[in-house]
Design a protein around this nucleic acid. Structure first.
Length: 429
RNA sequence: GGAGGGAUGGCAGAGCGGCUGAAUGCACUGGUCUUGAAAACCAGCAAGGAUUAAUCUCCUUCUAGGGUUCAAAUCCCUAUCCCUCCA
């Protein structure tokens, strides 16, 4: 959520900034509502003030043993007037909130202009795509022989699910364990285990709601669809991990907070029919190791670089060629101010594909989350900045390992760092 | 499944219709004292919002949502979460 102060004082600048990401809104509508709000709020507060002072006077008169009847008569219709003013104010505020909650974050000044992923800008490249003196297979063909099974998954659940058995399943687990250990031991993250079902408040805090409900799997207990009983499957570990610190004032000395968590992610993939239908690339359920940081405003962009490097460290350790791109304004996610995507080389697709997305949200999420720290200089709570990134998406990492480390006979070479996690297995064949 | 108890500021914890935005302690900030520190003492210290150049002032908030009342942290109802006991 953007700051309402900013929307009042500098709405033209907001419009201009959001235009960069092809988002437009009706300035006049918002200013009209804002003017109404101002008038109504002042009026309502005056009525409340009147009620408070009158009530106090009644209390005093009563204590002094005076006749309070005339005072009671004087406030007879105050309650109704107040109710009316309040409900009108509330309806205006709901309208304003609806508009403001649907507004995306303002892109950071370093974000390049552009409309789609074609306009993203490559920042760096690591490793060289391998040369293969045989015809490369994609992960579906490679995995089939080793226990990657989409047909059984389709029987159990449907399209966009997978079953893994045997060594593939172990490799998938090994990748997860390796990533978690790596980030805890080398990068200073605290491991977090979190719920996979979350309430609407949490999803509102990180920005998935109210705008993107269609992307979520929704459950309700005992067939009842009510606020309290509705839970959603998390679309990313970002949601529960970031929400651990919702509504808190973090001690300055504890900053930055750094959490790493392994969770499944559940996505409806509404609107992506026909895209990436083959293989593990786009699933309703996939595993991810998520990095989350919470920091002071002045540190956040430095930490975005670090966090991205942490994700890159996994790719390097697994000997996977990749490139880093900065997303253009038009391709930026709703809550993000700046995002680096890491794209791993997939020989089977002869292309770089996203495997991690690392973003700084500035105070956009923190404002919804009421996530703050107390500045000892001003003695005032200030909003923190939030960051997160995949470190990495496990399913896609599995794809990358299979495809990049395939050998002529269809076997898979296991990168050195995984050997201990694989019980000494160095090749899957 | 049944019966109770609870949720209050950064934390702990009093208050149980008007004098309570909230005692007290801890933490924190500033000061006195000290060569320095600790201790002691003094002072300050909830958040959000409206208005303002700023100060002032005002409004809202004691888990959440309803209700009673001129007036609610306090009474009533509902929900959520926590705890204890019984089965």
């Amino acid at each position: 959520m953007l700051s309402k102060k900013q929307l009042r004082s500098d709405i033209e600048a907001v419009e201009l900034a959001l235009k960069k990401r092809n988002f437009s809104f009706d300035i006049n509508q918002l200013t009209d509502l804002e003017n109404k709000r101002k008038k109504n709020q002042v009026q309502t507060q005056e009525l409340q003030n009147l009620r408070n002072t009158q009530s106090k006077a009644i209390g005093k008169a009563k204590a002094a043993g005076e006749d309070i009847k005339p005072l009671l008569d004087a406030v007879a219709d105050l309650g109704d007037k107040l109710d009316e003013a309040k409900s009108e104010l509330q309806s205006i505020q709901v309208q304003i909130d609806d508009i403001v909650m649907a507004m995306p974050n303002i892109p950071h000044e370093s974000v390049p202009e552009g409309n789609s992923e074609d306009d993203n800008v490559e920042v760096s490249k690591w490793g060289e795509p391998g040369q293969y003196d045989f015809e490369v297979k994609d992960h579906v063909d490679l995995g089939e022989a080793h226990g990657l099974d989409f047909e059984t998954a389709a029987k159990i659940s449907g399209a966009r699910f997978s079953v893994m058995t045997g060594k593939i399943a172990r490799l998938h687990r090994a990748l997860t364990q390796f990533m978690l250990d790596h980030h805890v031991e080398n990068n200073g993250y605290t491991e977090a285990y979190v719920p996979y079902l979350v309430n609407a408040e949490s999803l509102t805090g990180t920005g998935q709601l109210p705008k993107f409900e269609a992307d979520l799997f929704k459950t309700h207990l005992h067939g009842e669809e009510g606020e309290a009983k509705t839970l959603y499957l998390i679309p990313t570990g970002e949601v529960p991990i970031t929400n651990m610190v919702r509504d808190t004032i973090v001690k300055e000395g504890d900053l930055p907070l750094k959490f790493v968590g392994h969770t499944p992610s559940f996505r409806s993939e509404a609107g992506s029919y026909g895209r990436d239908t083959r293989g593990l690339i786009r699933q309703h359920q996939f595993e991810k190791v998520e990095l989350v940081q919470v920091a002071k405003a002045e540190d956040s962009y430095q930490l975005l670089e670090e966090l991205t490097n942490h994700a890159e460290g996994i790719l390097q350790a697994l000997e996977l060629p990749y490139r880093k791109v900065i997303l253009c304004a038009g391709d930026l996610g709703f809550s993000a101010a700046k995002t680096y995507d890491l794209e791993v080389w997939l020989p089977g697709q002869n292309a770089y594909r996203e495997i991690s997305s690392c973003s700084c949200f500035e105070d956009f999420q923190a404002r919804r989350l009421q996530l703050r720290w107390k500045n000892s200089e001003t003695n005032k709570p200030e909003l923190l900045h939030t960051l997160n990134g995949s470190g990495l998406a496990v399913g896609r990492t599995l794809v990358a390992v299979l495809e990049n480390h395939q050998q002529a006979d269809g076997s898979i070479r296991i990168p050195d760092v995984l050997h201990s996690y694989m019980g000494g297995i160095t090749v899957i064949n």
